[in-house]
Write a protein that binds this DNA or RNA. Structure first.
Length: 361
DNA sequence: AATACGGGGCA
DNA sequence: TGCCCAGTATT
């Protein structure tokens, strides 16, 4: 393990990428970056990290922000529960820790949204603690170097033991980042660059030619196909948007009313919308069909222009907790999913065509 | 132990 | 298409 550690640090010192959360940043910045990096690629996170830190430079600033502001800064990044929990975590830090991010793994684990990976990352990187971490990269590197030939997940106890052994001694934060960096840039899933890898001399996968079979990972299930209807209502240049409840899919985000059409439900779209909005709805034709793939669902959304029969009676039900008319400019101040942007954009094209349609009649 | 939770990039 | 990404919370 000593030689592996030295090789990792040498690799890191020579080849680490310059990333905005790498050098001389606050523990709060490390925390923000680690939450954003959960299941999300480095390149995707970079612009979000810059914008988020500019808008919420400290835990105090984040704690004082509105939920809509935080979700607006997270819009498009996905896994929006992360944003809600980071926001809640900032409030805990301000209330219970004087605005300072806690230093120990144990205290970090108490924060919402911080699990064993993230606690290890913050404790080691921001505070120099000998705290281990295991993510997808670590699974790959350790399974290959040590030749672990059984089904693995990032929760595997043996991997955590190895990771713990790895970070004992100097520079635990750099060691954790080094093994992840190696996994991300050298020890990749496909076509690993073993010829450039400082660990290849001691690597079981390299010795046995098993790079393509290790790590052995469980198979993922295919997403479920779901049909949905979306309603586009425009009134005096403003769009009808509903805010989803905090829990569940797209929690806290704003979107045009959308309803799931379960298999075999032949009811009119207007009837489905009326149920959610609590007032009569008229729909006119189909603006577009939007496809959107999530981890567990494959959505096909039929987008319909329409109007409300009794706008003053509008309420909201089902997945929604609020409804309002908002200008397109206001969209940048609210949390909006990528799916909703697609639905909105597909409707915008139709809106521009409207005059022509009138002409044809 | 299994499932829900986004979105994008790549072979 | 399927896989994977600096995972966590809930059931």
């Amino acid at each position: 393990m000593g030689r592996v550690r030295d090789a990792l640090l040498a690799f890191y010192d020579a080849h680490k990428r310059e990333l905005p959360w790498r050098e001389g940043v606050s523990a709060y910045a490390t925390w923000v970056s680690e939450i954003m990096l959960q299941q999300t690629r480095v390149e995707t996170v970079v612009p979000y990290f810059h914008a988020f830190m500019r808008k919420f430079p400290t835990a105090l600033a984040l704690a004082d922000a509105s939920s809509d502001d935080v979700l607006a800064a997270w819009s498009g990044l996905g896994y929006y529960r992360r944003a809600r929990m980071l926001h809640a975590g900032a409030k805990v830090v301000v209330r219970d820790h004087g605005g300072e991010v806690p230093h120990t793994r144990e205290a970090l684990l108490e924060l919402p949204g911080v699990g064993r990976y993230t606690a290890g990352a913050i404790a080691s990187i921001a505070f120099g603690q000998e705290a281990p971490l295991v993510d997808g990269n670590v699974v790959r590197v350790l399974s290959r170097v040590f030749g672990i030939d059984r089904e693995l997940s990032p929760q595997d106890d043996e991997l955590w033991s190895l990771a713990q052994a790895l970070v004992r001694g100097p520079r635990p934060g750099d060691l954790n980042q080094a093994i992840m960096e190696l996994g991300a840039t050298v020890c990749t899933k496909d076509a690993p660059a073993c010829q450039d890898c400082g660990l290849s001399r001691w690597c079981e996968a390299r010795r046995l030619g098993k790079q393509a079979v290790w790590p052995r990972l469980p198979r993922k299930k295919a997403p479920r196909k779901v049909a949905m209807e979306a309603l586009l209502v425009e009134r005096r240049g403003e769009l009808l948007l509903c805010r989803r409840r905090e829990e569940g899919l797209f929690g806290g985000l704003w979107e045009p009313p959308m309803v799931e059409r379960s298999m075999g439900d032949r009811r009119d779209a207007s009837e489905l919308f009326a149920e959610v909005l609590g007032c009569p709805v008229e729909v006119s034709g189909v603006a577009s069909v939007v496809r959107h793939v999530l981890t567990h669902r494959e959505l096909t959304v039929t987008v319909r222009p329409g109007c409300l029969g009794a706008p003053d009676a509008m309420t909201c039900a089902g997945p929604y907790q609020a409804a309002r008319f908002a200008s397109r400019d206001a969209l940048s101040t609210l949390g909006v999913s990528r799916l909703s942007r697609k639905v909105l954009e597909s409707g915008a094209e139709i809106a521009e065509k409207k005059p022509r349609r009138g002409k044809l009649r």
